[in-house]
Design a protein around this nucleic acid. Structure first.
Lengths: 209, 209
DNA sequence: CCCGCGATGATCGAGTTCCGCTCGGTGACG
DNA sequence: CGTCACCGAGCGGAACTCGATCATCGCGGG
């Protein structure tokens, strides 16, 4: 599941793109615009991000920004969505390489992946994963979380026996919500990630399982 | 501790007011402005709130908004702070009336209070309590969270034996962060508050303690 | 096979609209 | 009648539009 797969569908207002890109350079443009948005968010915060800053940093013009995104908020939404998608990819990679045998270890992978994102992806701490989790369906499209968290659910379902799929999806959802909230807290306390707070996050998830 | 006590002091940039009101009608005005802000946030969301919308709904002019708040973000900050303060007052009231004897029951009171806030206060679901929790100190003033969560900490410290104050404050912080995130999730799933999700929130806190 | 050429996609940026915020003038309270 | 509160036109800047321009692609004839 690639980033383009994600943004080319009918998404909610946060994350929408105006036109599906056809030529290859367009995808690169979108990527560059989102990179620029991340950098700007990391520098000045979400509120003070302007579309002009994004355009300039991406080496594009204002018009180009608005070719791909209906408005300023959609840029932030797409950035947020991409961050979430990257986090999921990192999680899947980690799960597949370490092959945890306990639920606890599996969630440990998710936390490691999230911590890594906070440390390496500019602006990741400023966006709310919850904007992508538990999002109601819009105009007939599946909720972003369902489409995007699918790979995780599959891994967990294959590795661990859970009574039914709904329960598993819910528990994943709840766990991700907690991890996100607690890690954001950890990275607000300390920009490098407060170790005690991260440990507390692990403890909470362990207790929950 | 009243709302005015909170906003009249030297606060962080979120929540600041421009002038301390002298005449009585001013306080009413501020209240009306914040009510308007809550309603607008509930309708169009934080990002799309404009100062003109707030002014119009409060029956005031643009100038009046800027008499009391230095900028748009300060309006949101004050609204957020008032919501947090109301939540704390409701929590303290519930704690004092039910006098729980277990940690679990005590946190149950907090959750009840928060659920009540989500159900009755427009826009409460859109604001992040975390903006008030774990806020770093600014310009020499104590962090809003410390001043504001004091009453809670006192009750918990008086009722339950905890090794040291720091641990207690941290645990309260973590618990509130989780409760906030999980309840927001519950109210995103269902505007009236998804009962299963609320139950999940209680379960998580119970597991954590 | 490749070269030219029309069609379509992508880009640009000046211009328009809207919004955050100021400030000087007017009314209300004490 | 001084001070506090309020108003709202106006200013600056940011969000967003739109028609002109450039790049790329598909295709048919040499």
């Amino acid at each position: 599941m690639s980033f383009n797969d994600l943004i080319s569908g009918a998404l909610t207002s946060t994350g929408k793109v105006r036109n599906e890109p056809v030529q290859a350079r367009s995808s690169e443009r979108i990527g560059a615009l989102l990179d620029a948005a991340s950098a700007v968010v990391a520098e000045v915060g979400i509120e003070r991000l302007t579309t002009a800053m994004v355009a300039e940093r991406a080496g594009a013009s204002i018009g180009t920004v608005y070719r791909y995104f209906p408005d300023r908020i959609a840029v932030l939404g797409a950035m947020s969505l991409r961050g979430f998608e990257r986090f999921l990819r990192a999680s899947v990679d980690l799960l597949e390489s370490t092959k945890p045998t306990t639920m606890d270890a599996a969630f440990g992978c998710l936390i490691d992946a999230a911590v890594q994102m906070h440390r390496t992806e500019p602006g990741f701490t400023s966006i709310r994963l919850s904007d992508q989790i538990a999002l109601p369906e819009v105009d007939g499209g599946t909720a972003a979380s369902a489409r995007v968290a699918g790979p995780l659910a599959e891994i967990f379902a294959a590795e661990f026996d859970i009574a039914d799929d709904g329960t598993l999806a819910d528990r994943l959802d709840i766990a991700l919500t907690m991890v996100d909230a607690l890690l954001v807290r950890a990275f607000i306390i300390d920009p490098q990630g407060d170790e005690d707070a991260i440990a507390a996050c692990r403890a909470v998830v362990t207790a929950y399982l």
